[in-house]
Structures are given as C-alpha cells and as structure tokens.
Design a protein around this nucleic acid. Structure first.
Length: 1069
RNA sequence: GGGCGGGUAGCUCAACCGGCUAGAGCGCUCGCCUUACACGCGAGAGGUUCGGGGUUCGAAUCCCCGCCUGCCCA
C-alpha cells in the first residue's frame, strides 16, 4: 500500500480482526512440547487464572491477561517454546446461583422443580454461552493463548484429574469427614449458601440468664453432685468486685446475655474478656448449667465484648453490643459461628471439663433433640421435642420461675433468613469432607518451596502472606451442598456386610480400583458392624465398580467439591495429568503465574501443595507448579471501589476496545501497573444515540456504594434515555431498543490511543521517506561511521532495550511502558526524526539506520501493542535493509509475522556516551533558542540568525546544520547582533538571536531574563549554602562535593551572562 | 484482632542504595492547522512531599508518635 494512502490516524478497527486471523492461521501461538523435550528450545509457560464462567470479563481481567500476554509474547520472541494455557473455571456456587436466579426470573421455576441432571444441563448451557463470551473477549484483546489447548475445569480431562487426585489423597488418609457449621434452612432441611440468604431486622430481646458458679468436682465432673457451690463470700475473698454487696453465704452466679436462650442447652463454656477486672477472681471456677447440670469452664477470650461501663477505649464503648453486654458470653460452638471459633481456640480447656466441644441440641428441623449429639439431658428433658420458638419461650419461663432470669430487654438486630422459605437460618452442624492440609506433606511442603527458592513472589512482600497462611492453616472443607461441580467420588453404605461383599471390596482394593478412607467420626476404618458407615472412593475409569456398588446398596455422596479443588489441579489437569504426557513433561513447572492478592491463599497456595504432593516424586517433594508469582494491582472504579459483578461497576474491555482500540487499552493498563498502588479508573459513558461521551449521573446505594444511576439521559437530547451496566446488573432496568445499554469509556485510555497513533504516524513518515529513497548502502554498517543523530539514536535504543529487559525481568510493567513510550515519542519522534529530516533523503546509510531503528522499536513495542506493531511490520519488513553492527534483529519464524520475529538484541558496543553527551549539548542549545523564539512570538517558519561568541564557534560548527534544522536558523555568525535582537545564555556564554521580527518585545525579554536570574539565584543559594556547610564538605563523598562546586560555578557564570544581557536591555535596572 | 499497602502538582501516578533546582501523563496558560501525527508541535505556570518529633553533612525516602485511607486473613 503506498504510504500516501495510509490514513492520518490509526484506526484499530480496521486492523485488529485481520491481524488476529493471520496470527491464528500461522499457528504461532501453538506450543510444541517436542521442541522442548528434544532440546531445541527452552520452555516458557503461563497458566491463565481461569476466569469464572459466571460473567463477562471486566477491566481487572483485562489487566491480568494483558500482563500475561506481554510476558508470553516477549518470551516467544526471545525464542522460548511458549505455552500460554487458556481456560475457564466452573465456579460452583457463583454459577449455580446465577443460573438459579435467571431461571426463576424467566420461568418462575426453582431448582427443586428440576431433576439434578436436568438442572445441571441448564447450567451447562449457561456455561457454554459465557465461555464463548469470555473467549471472544480474550481474543479481541489479542491474547496469544494456545487456543487449541483450551480447557474447562469440568471437562473430561480435568474431571479425570480431579477424580485421581481425590483418590490418592483419600487413599493416603489426607481426606476425611468431619463436622462444620453451615447455614441451614430448617424448612427445606438443606444447607444454603451465603448468597442465598438475606438479612432482615427483627424486634427481639436480650435475655439475661444467671448461671450458678461452682468448683468442679473430682475426676468425674459430669457428675452433678460433685460440683461444690461457690459462695459470694468466697468470691469476695478472691477479690471479685462487688461480691461483698451480695448475701454472703448464698451461691454466687454470673449473668450471660443472649438473644437465643434456647441454645443454652448446648453451652460448653462461659467466656470473659481477659481485660475484665472480674476475670482474675473467676480463674479456675466453673458454672453449672441449670437443669442440664453440665459443669462448664470459664474461659478468657478477647472476643468477648466488655460492658459499656468497663470499656477502655471509645472504640470499645461505641460497640453497639457494649450497651447490652454483661461481660459474660455463653459459648455454644454447635450453634453459633463465633462460638464455634472460640470453641476451637479453647478446645483443650473445654474437653478438660469432661465433655465435647460440639454439643448439637437440635434436629434438622430445628426442634430440640437429644438424638443428634446431646447426651447429658437430665432435667432438661422438658425441652426435648419443642420447636426452637417454643423452646425459647419455655427456657425463659423456666428460668424466670426459678429466679434465674435477671432481665429481658428489647433489642432490634438483623437476622439471616433463607431466600427460598423466608425461614430464619440456623447455624447447624453437618457432615463435610476435609483435606488434611495441615499434614506436613502439604502445608509445610508449600513453605519449603519458598525457603528453597523454588518459588518467588513479586513484589516479594507477598511471600509473607503465603508463608503465614500456611503456618496458620486449618483443614480445608471441600464439600459443597450444590449440584454444579465435581461430584464427590465416594460411595457409602451403612448396611451390614456379608462375607462375600467384604471379599469383593478387598479384591477391588488390591487392584487399586477403590480405597477405604476414614469412614466417619466414630473412626472405624472397616465397618462390618451395624452402626458404622463404610465409605469407598473409586478410582476414575471404573464405571463397572461404581455400578456394582450401587447394586450392593451403596449411594454416592450427593455433595460436590469446592471449586478450588479443581482449580488447585490446574497446573496438572491442563497438561494431561495423571497421564504421562509430553505437555506435562515439557511445561510443568510453568514459568510465571500472574494473579491478584486475594488469590494467594485461595488458589496459589493450593496449587503449590497439590503439585508438590501429586506430581513427580510427590508426597510433598514434587516440583512447584510455577517459579514466579506476580501479584498485580486491583483496578477500582472512580470512587475507589473494587470492580465487581454485584456492584455492576465492572467495565467491559470490549467497550474500551470499541472506543480506543485493543492496543490503547493494553498500553494504558500496563502503564498503570506499578508495584505498590491499586489504580482508580474513573469512567464515562458513550451515548448509544449520539456517540457523545459524557460523565454519568451517580447514585448512592443503600449499602453506601456510589454507582452509575440505572437510567441516564443523552447529554444532547434529554428525551433520549439509556441504561447502565449497574441498572441491568441490579435488575432495576433492562435494555430495550429505545433504551439501549450505554457503553463505558475512560479518558485514561487516551494515553494509549495517542501513543498508538504516534507510532502509526512515525511509521507512516518513515515509510514515506524510505519507499521513495534510492541509492546504495553497504550491507554491513559500522555505527562508528555514522552521523551524530544516528549514533545517538542507536545508543538510546541500546539503553531502552536494556531498561525494558531489566523492567520485564523484575515484573515492573509500568517501567516497561514508560521506557517504550520515551524511546518512541521523546527520542525517536521528537529528536531523531526531526534531526534527520534534512539529511535522510540523500543518505542511504541513514535510511538503513532509520529502517533498523524503526524495526527494533516495533519489536520492543510488540508485546504491549501487538496489533498496531504487526500492522506496521507488514510494510516495514519489505524495506531495503543493512546489518547494523551490534544490533541483532532475527527474522520472523512464521509467515513473516512480527510476533514470531526476534526480540531486539543490542550489543554493548551500541552504547555511546560521547554521542549522548554531544547530542545533549545540541539539544540544550536548540531548547535555549526555542525558548527565545517562544517568548518573542517568532513565527514557526521564520528563519532567525544566531550570533555565536567567537570562542564557541569551532565547537558549534560541526553541528551547525543539525541545530539549524531543529530550530529554524537562517544564518550563524560570530558578529555581534546589532539592532533588533535578543540574548540568551548557553553554557555560560552569551549568545544572540536576530531577525526575530521587525521589533523585539523588550518587556518580554526583561521578564524572561529576570525569571532566569531568579532561578539561578535560587540555585546559587542552595549550592552555596551546601558548600559553606563544613560538615558537608568534610563528610559527603568528594565526588558529590566536586559536582556541587561545578554546578555552582556554572550557575554563577550563567547568572553573570544573563545579568549582562538584562543590563543592556534595561540599563536603568 | 493479625498482616500488608497508600497519603507527593487541580487529577492519576513516578522518584533505584538517603544526594540532580522532586518528574511524567492528563488538565491549565501562551503561540502554532511548521506537507508524519491537532489523538499533533513549541514554550510555560503549577509542589511547606498528611501533621509532629528524631537520626544524618544531607530526608519524599530511615526511625518513633499521631491523623486519614485501601486491601487480605481471622
């Protein structure tokens, strides 16, 4: 295409899809493990953090994937066999919830109206839809993934890995069944997820219950008779504040405050804050639960809220619970999440008192029951069988009648309810599966990777997050009461086994088809007696065994695995594990993982543990899944709120690609990725009716978030409306033909758009020169033979490549963006192109340098702006070339594509300090002349005359035409300017400019010179002050002192020259 | 409660080991449609580096105290 026909602006939409097709057709992104295994290339692999199929990607994902693509493309150009593995995550809870909502909204049907298989099919269809959307988004962004290898965490290959991993962990005793509190809907008798609940304020009461104090009896404390009452007199002796005011010889008590008195049946302790003045006096004492007779310890735990009167700080005083608190908290671990944690923290003390930490006093329908873990019922049998509401009334009545109810105060608070049934959600103990990550082969193995330097975080402070997580890790609950996910591969039976059945199971076990795990909390490994359950895990690929088990009366666990279980296997499953595949051999361990902070514990940690446990020699000694983990910033909206689906403030990358282009988006995102800061992204809307960009109206949600109002008016025509992403996401509005969805945009991306455009035009200009140029140049050019601008440009190129290499090596993405910005715009466009304009048409060698430098810059920019660079490269490639000694530009490997060309390599010989210094002088002089021209309003085209002090003429002569071209000089002379002229100082000498105009604005000159003198005076004062400080001269490094002296001398000389010029202009001053 | 960040120009962010008159982009002011680019060119204005103490010849940078703010884990 002739250059003249290239449009003046780079229009991304005209290039992106064509370039994408060329890339795909070339197979450039497809990795070949055999090249690694055959030793022809070193591997470089990145695993995509698989996005949830729940929703479209937003700008946070765009950032995440841009960074990965930059790393992948550069590695590919550097000659690594590069695999960027793409895929998506099934995101169990989130996806199922989204589909349930959608199905209800559209068909008014609930999950229970479908069979499990039918409903899973609906989710599957939803997943297919969003997987396609996400893939499209990534491809539009230019992501150079190996698309032929795309995976999904629930596809067959990943499912096999999940089954095998579960089997091995189960077999090795690292998976067990245990109890945990879940949100329980007693009406449906099922667990519900957090996002299936809503909070609602209800009017209720705080009840104040008195528990009598006792000394625990002998070795069998559960025997009520052994407990000895504690009297107020005794408490007074122990220093209990206020005890002396109580009737001395009667039994003392403590008062707990609770909103749920019926749960007292399951209390296992009473807790007090260690800072409570009463704590010391109570140490070692117990209380006896009324009617139940259970003797339970008094614990000290700082979770307990101090009553208002004892609060030590305003913060404590302002705790809303402080008004109601007594300082004593009943601890019911089986019926309250916070109490559960207190129970875990004080396990030993509670068990030391002779009973379990978890005492469940309810049946699944939330009625009081002694069949689900409660044994010491005693006189409390009067409550058994009551509903939780009736039980509450009766507990209160019983306490009251015995004088144990101290008070009852109205209290309004919010309570969790089930979406479906509106029933109050009950924290309820249920059976769950766990991975014993506390085993040293898992958690410790992960930390060892850090200490052995097999694994590194960037920035490295995140290593601490990783390390501390593993040090404090708790076993991982992996079961979820959902339908969407990997079904737990365990079949159980509580039946009595015949001998032949046992033989059959043993046979399968010996063939490694199944394994027995830890069966249940009773701990039986083998269950051949009635009360226990036998659970077997079936290895993948034994469908016949599964079938037979069902025939024998076994049923498969209905739960599915936590999504993170399959994500944790991502480095293995995507590469074909448990198969012995070339991909696995070539690319695991992978090279770099790019992700966000909160993922360190959720995902990074688990991948490290599983890879080390399951791969290679395994058992915690296997390889790490990746060597470097880069943690990048979080993109917030304009208000500093994190982008999220629920807030509806996520910006679709396709919107930005539409307004600015993919390259502009990528460049800007990369430019924002500094090491410490999260980034804010204020967005505007594009009116779908008029294409105007405008700032939307905002509203504050009831939760206090600031979001775009659901409906917006067109700025030019108020009658035209549109809806926002928030409006749709919140369900408040819907897009219609009259009211379409408005796209987002942000002026932030102008940076990248302008930069892409600058590159486009620089290339357009260079092509214009080079396409028409004639003349022969040597095939090999030695930089030493070149002109100053050429030598300088090559030296700058060397510096830029070195800096870019360093920046990317240390994952400093914004530095990389900065470096390429400066080399292209500041160096290549502002100075180099301007400098060679007069000479390049007639200088074939300079033409070769121009072509080579442009080519090198395209390569340097390709990872961050792949589309525009590839488009330009289509033409640059065909230019006549010469080898510039010291600069290596390897030819493309496939189809002439830049994405397969070599990363620029600059020999140290290209660095040229002399050329840099010399060019810097030219630049200084040019800038000084331009400043005078600007002050004097000299027209851009007017050629002015430069008057040079005779002593400086020789130095200048060599670069006269260069300077002349850069600031429109007509003549250069050693004669003094007479008549209409201006003066300026450069390198402490006085220069003149004439022929500026018909008259010189003396006032402007005086102002400029005066300002200059003021600046110099300031500098002289600073520098002089530094030198007059004896300690500075004595203690600072001599080099620095000398530097200061030189600077001072120069400033003083400049000041003198400027003052002289000023004196001539305005002798009176 | 534990851990990790941030507070620098009107805005968004830089500033390596403590050392350049604290930089860049946007915005602003002035002049230019200078045949690559007005998504541009040239020239400018703009900062008590959150507050207070300390260490040092020298502090945006290190230490202590305080204030504000974000995130992760519990």
């Amino acid at each position: 295409m002739p250059t003249q026909e290239l449009p003046k602006q780079y229009r991304p939409g005209e290039h992106e899809s064509r370039i994408w097709e060329r890339w795909l057709a070339s197979g450039a992104f497809h990795a070949d493990p055999s090249r690694v295994l055959g030793g022809q290339a070193a591997p470089y692999a990145i695993l995509i953090p698989p996005p949830n199929v729940t929703d479209r990607l937003h700008l946070g994902h765009a950032l995440n994937n841009t960074l990965q693509d930059i790393l992948a493309r550069r590695a590919r150009m550097q000659g690594f066999e590069t695999l960027w593995m793409p895929g998506t995550d099934h995101a169990g809870i989130a996806t199922q919830a989204v589909v349930e909502k959608r199905v209800y909204a559209e068909e008014k049907k609930r999950r229970g109206d479908f069979t499990r298989d039918a409903f899973v099919a609906r989710i599957q269809a939803f997943k297919d839809e969003y997987e396609a959307v996400i893939t499209g988004q990534l491809q539009k962004m230019g992501c150079s993934c190996d698309w032929e290898r795309q995976r999904f965490t629930m596809d067959d290959q990943c499912a096999k890995a999940v089954r095998e991993a579960f089997f091995r962990l189960f077999r090795d005793g690292l998976i067990y069944r245990g109890k945990r509190l879940v949100n329980w809907d007693p009406a449906l008798q099922t667990a519900v997820a957090d996002d299936e609940c809503f909070d609602e304020e209800v009017d209720s009461f705080f009840y104040y219950l008195r528990y009598p104090l006792v000394h625990k009896g002998g070795e069998k404390p559960q025997s009520v008779d052994d407990a000895v009452p504690v009297t107020w007199n005794e408490l007074a002796r122990r220093g209990y504040p206020g005890a002396e005011h109580q009737p001395g010889e009667t039994q003392a008590w403590v008062t707990v405050a609770t909103t749920r008195p019926e749960t007292y049946l399951g209390d296992v302790a009473v807790a007090i804050n260690p800072h409570d003045p009463r704590a010391a006096a109570l140490r070692g004492l117990h209380v006896e639960l009324p009617l139940v007779g259970r003797v339970i310890p008094i614990l000290e735990d700082s979770y307990v809220v101090l009553p208002e009167a004892m609060a030590r700080t305003d913060e404590e005083k302002n705790d809303p619970k402080a008004k109601f608190a007594t300082g004593f908290l009943k601890v019911t671990p089986a019926h309250d999440q916070n109490d559960y944690e207190i129970g875990q923290r004080h396990k030993a003390e509670i068990e030391g008192a002779g009973h379990a930490v978890l005492i469940n006093v309810m049946a699944p329908d939330a009625s009081i029951s002694d069949n689900h873990g409660w044994t010491d019922v005693n006189d409390a049998k009067i409550f058994v069988g009551l509903t939780r509401e009736d039980a509450r009334a009766k507990v209160v009545a019983e306490f009251k009648s015995r004088g144990w109810l101290e008070a009852q105060r109205p209290y309004r608070h919010s309570i969790k309810h089930s979406d479906r049934t509106k029933a109050v959600v009950e924290p309820y103990l249920s059976d769950q599966w766990y991975v014993r990550v506390t085993d040293p082969r898992l958690a410790q193995a992960a930390n060892r990777a850090l200490h052995d330097k097999d694994l590194a975080f960037h920035p490295d402070r995140y290593a601490k997050t990783f390390e501390q997580w593993h040090e404090n890790i708790r076993d991982w609950c992996i079961s979820r009461q959902l339908w969407w996910g990997h079904r737990i591969p365990v079949w159980s039976s509580s039946a009595f086994f015949s001998e032949s059945l046992e033989l059959q199971l043993d046979q399968w076990k010996s063939e490694s088809k199944i394994d027995f795990g830890i069966v249940d909390r009773l701990g039986g490994q083998f269950a051949t007696h009635m009360s226990a359950t036998t659970s077997v895990c079936v290895r993948p690929g034994n469908d016949d065994v599964e079938k037979r088990l069902v025939e024998m009366g076994f049923t498969q666990d209905p739960d599915v695995l936590d999504t993170w279980f399959s994500s944790a296997l991502w480095p293995l499953s995507t590469l074909g594990w448990p198969g012995d595949t070339p991909e696995l051999a070539a690319f695991n361990p992978t090279s770099t993982l790019c992700t966000a902070r909160e993922i360190i514990t959720l995902w990074v940690s688990r991948m490290v543990m599983f890879n080390r446990y399951l791969h290679g020699e395994g058992q915690g000694h296997g390889p790490v899944p990746f060597r470097d983990v880069f943690i990048h910033a979080v993109i917030q909206d304009g208000q500093g709120q994190k982008m999220s689906k629920s807030l509806g403030n996520g910006v679709d990358p396709l919107d930005i690609i539409a307004s600015h282009g993919a390259d502009a988006m990528r460049f800007t995102l990369c430019h924002m990725t500094t090491q410490t800061q999260d980034v804010r992204m204020p967005v505007d809307l594009v009116c779908p009716h008029t294409d105007d960009t405008f700032t939307p109206k905002y509203i504050t949600t009831k939760d206090g978030y600031v979001v775009q109002a659901p409906i917006q008016e067109s700025p030019r025509d108020k009658s035209k409306k549109m809806v926002t992403v928030y409006g749709v996401a919140s369900g408040e509005t819907k897009a219609t033909p009259d009211m379409p969805l408005a796209k987002n945009t942000s002026a932030k991306f102008d940076l990248g758009r302008n930069f892409a455009n600058k590159l486009w035009n620089a290339a357009r200009f260079a092509m214009g020169i080079l396409a028409n140029a004639a003349g022969d140049a040597p095939a090999v050019i030695d930089p030493r033979e070149l002109s100053l601008p050429d030598r300088w440009m090559l030296s700058r190129l060397h510096d830029a490549v070195t800096s870019a290499d360093q920046a990317l090596k240390s994952f400093e993405f914004s530095v990389y963006a900065q470096v390429v910005y400066d080399i292209l715009w500041r160096d290549f466009c502002d100075w180099y192109l301007e400098a060679i304009k007069p000479s390049v048409a007639a200088d074939p060698r300079q033409q070769r340098v121009l072509a080579a430098v442009l080519d090198a810059i395209l390569r340097l920019l390709h990872p961050i702006m792949p589309f525009v660079t590839e488009s330009i490269y289509e033409q640059v490639r065909s230019l006549p070339r010469a080898q510039i000694r010291g600069l290596t530009l390897r030819e493309p490997g496939r189809d002439g594509l830049l994405c397969t060309a070599g990363w620029p390599l600059c020999d140290a010989s290209l660095a040229n300090a002399d050329a840099a210094a010399e060019f810097e002088r030219v630049r200084g002089l040019v800038t000084a002349i331009r400043e005078v021209r600007a002050t004097q309003n000299v027209h851009a085209k007017r050629l002015v005359t430069l008057h040079v002090p005779a002593a400086r003429m020789d130095a200048l002569l060599a670069h006269e035409s260069l300077v002349a071209g850069l600031c429109q000089l007509g003549q250069v002379t050693t004669q003094r300017a007479d008549g209409v002229s201006a003066t300026f100082t450069f390198e402490a000498a006085e220069f003149g400019l004439s022929n500026l105009a018909d008259a010189v604005d003396a006032g402007a000159e005086v102002e400029r010179l005066t300002r200059q003198i003021e600046d110099l005076d300031k500098a002289i004062k600073t520098l002089g002050g530094r030198l007059s400080n004896e300690s500075y001269v004595a203690k600072a490094p001599p080099k620095l002192v000398q530097e200061t002296k030189d600077q001072l001398a120069k400033a003083m000389a400049e000041r003198e020259a400027a003052a002289a010029a000023l004196g001539r202009l305005a002798p009176s001053k």
